[in-house]
Design a binder for these strands. Structure first.
Length: 511
RNA sequence: GGGCCCUUAGCUCAGCGGUAGAGCAGCGGCCUUUUAAGCCGUUGGCCGCGGGUUCAAAUCCCGCAGGGCCCA
């Protein structure tokens, strides 16, 4: 939309600021100097001297200290021959206090040309104002960068969601919580990585462009390699490569990276998203449960300071252990359905029809159980819950349960009504795996374009021997949503996918 | 994919058949400890785009675009 910034278009604000820029130059100033004069970060000063009791004005002035700090001008309050401004740097604010008699030439003239959004550096002693706010009594001003376009309104911030996502920098400048959320995201990823390393896992990187996309039932994005003249796919999961690494002798590996799935967008789905996958030789699903509980409770404690965190109107407890429930029990419990009804194919079909599930006649009983689970239970699983015993049709890479080959040794972890994690006792029987791939190929023939493709090299790797292995994927974006109480995945991805603006509007941004 | 809702000044929003409005921001004044500073004055609009209905459309109808929420 035209509102989404039209930088090179003339407008009232830009023209006036361009004039001010010329006046700055006329004062003999470099409007875009190469380096800022800076002795302290704003956060550093705030942390050291914010305490008004420990640092009353007399004590601050008694320091005889002169500091230089830089920041973006957020507010300007002009009071005749004195001016107050807030500078911001990295989400922290500091007040600058200018008095005409204090400021060295050409500081006062510079001040007259200052707009909100500009960057300046100020130098002078620290002081505390009458109202007790830590400030710099400015003796010297250095102009650092002119903002030609105005900032969004100062106390409502930027509200238009479209513009917030398209011009995230404006969102970050004017909505304080946004910067905080993304700093928290960084700390969450860091804590997850630290935890995995502490457990002896090795971080690896596997292909994001794959000749055969595998490891998840999802439609891939396709691209093309010119020199080799071959199609390549953006990965939907790293799974098959990570398992090859276990075949190759690694004991514990993990990868935190992007996956790409060619599907719709929603508050829980972005086409590219960040996933952690981990695999451990010799372990199984139970080990993955324990790892997951400890990981989540540790990260919640370390980053958020508590295992009890708000989620909308509710509170989620990340304290281990998490609840465990089989898929059938979940359907029975949340659908108030007699457990025996789920043991018989005909009654499952009848039930599925009664809740308007599509294509009931052509789907397998296992698939329908998955649908019924989604229908009755998924949204209700607010507290962390491991759902186990998945139908084999839904799980082509997972070992069957002992004694019942209609179901597999898999869990999905649900929190806040969302699928957060997915784990298997990995299928390591190459002959069984080949049969499962065959079943997927049949599904593909039948029209399911999310069904997996045969990856023969992966089967070959299994023929060389994969030890018993537990594996899991955890959706990092969703984890950040949960821990930061964010309702939409777009609020935890800096630049979520947006449809491009129309050419006439996009031109405004490319000139 | 289906349903509902939104799009008006740089930003936040009113207005919902009869001359386009407010606050903030901007511009010009006054003000040497303010902090949503204050006071006086003032500029700024293809009312998302395209059709239609009407004497008259920001307002009603249809289509399109972008976005949001709910459902699949």
């Amino acid at each position: 939309m035209v509102r989404a910034g039209a930088p090179m278009q003339p407008n009232q604000y830009r023209d006036i600021r361009l004039e001010k820029l010329e006046k700055l130059k006329a004062l003999g100033l470099d409007a875009w100097p190469r380096k800022a004069k800076r002795t302290h970060g704003i956060a550093q000063l705030a942390a050291a001297y914010a305490d008004a009791e420990a640092w009353p004005n007399e004590k601050l002035e008694g320091l005889g200290l002169s500091v230089s700090a830089m920041g973006r001008v957020l507010t300007i309050r002009e009071m005749g021959k004195s001016v107050f401004a807030h500078l911001t740097e990295n989400g922290e604010k500091l007040q600058a206090f200018f008095r005409k008699d204090d400021v060295a030439e050409p500081g006062w003239d510079v001040l007259k040309l200052l707009d909100m959004g500009d960057f300046i550096s100020v130098t002078g002693p620290l002081m505390r104002t009458k109202t007790g706010e830590l400030s710099i009594r400015v003796k010297e001003v250095q102009f650092l960068s002119k903002a030609l376009l105005p900032l969004p309104e100062k106390w409502h911030g930027l509200q238009d969601k479209e513009q917030r996502y398209r011009q995230r920098y404006l969102d970050l400048i004017s909505n304080g919580d946004v910067l905080k959320t993304f700093r928290t995201r960084s700390r969450i990823v860091s804590a997850v990585r630290r935890y995995m390393e502490d457990q002896g896992y090795l971080e690896v990187e596997t292909p994001m462009m794959q000749p055969i996309p595998g490891g998840a039932t999802a439609r891939p994005f396709i691209t093309h390699h010119n020199a080799l003249d071959m199609p390549l796919y953006l990965r939907v999961a790293p799974e098959l490569y990570l398992k090859r690494l276990i075949v190759g002798g690694f004991e514990k590996v993990f990868e935190i990276n992007r996956n790409f799935r060619n599907e719709g967008l929603s508050v829980r789905h972005n086409p590219e998203f960040t996933m952690m996958e981990m695999y451990e030789a010799g372990s199984d699903l139970r080990d993955m449960m324990t790892l997951t509980e400890n990981l989540l409770s540790t990260v919640a404690r370390e980053v958020m300071g508590s295992e009890q965190l708000p989620w909308g109107e509710q509170v989620i407890s990340y304290a281990a252990p998490f609840r465990r429930l089989t898929m059938k029990d979940a359907i029975a419990q949340y659908g108030a359905i007699d457990r025996h009804q789920l043991e018989d194919g005909d009654s499952v079909r009848t039930l599925a029809k009664s809740v308007h599930i599509e294509d009931v006649e052509t789907k397998t009983v296992g698939t329908l159980l998955g649908d019924l689970f989604e229908h009755y239970a998924e949204k209700q699983l607010i507290q962390p819950t491991f759902i186990t015993d998945y139908p084999i049709e839904l799980s082509p890479l997972t070992k069957a349960l002992e004694g019942d080959d209609r179901f597999v040794d898999r869990f999905e972890l649900f929190i806040g009504g969302m699928e957060l994690a997915n784990a298997y006792s990995e299928l390591n029987d190459p002959i069984d795996q080949m049969g499962r791939f065959q079943a997927q190929m049949d599904e593909r023939e039948a029209g399911n374009d999310e069904a997996m493709l045969l990856d023969m090299d992966f089967v070959t790797s299994l023929e060389h021997g994969l030890p018993p292995t537990g594996g899991e994927g955890i959706g990092i974006d969703r984890l950040v949503m949960l821990l930061t109480n964010s309702a939409s995945i777009r609020d935890v991805i800096l630049f979520p996918l947006m449809r491009p603006m129309k050419p006439s509007e996009a031109a405004d941004n490319t000139e």
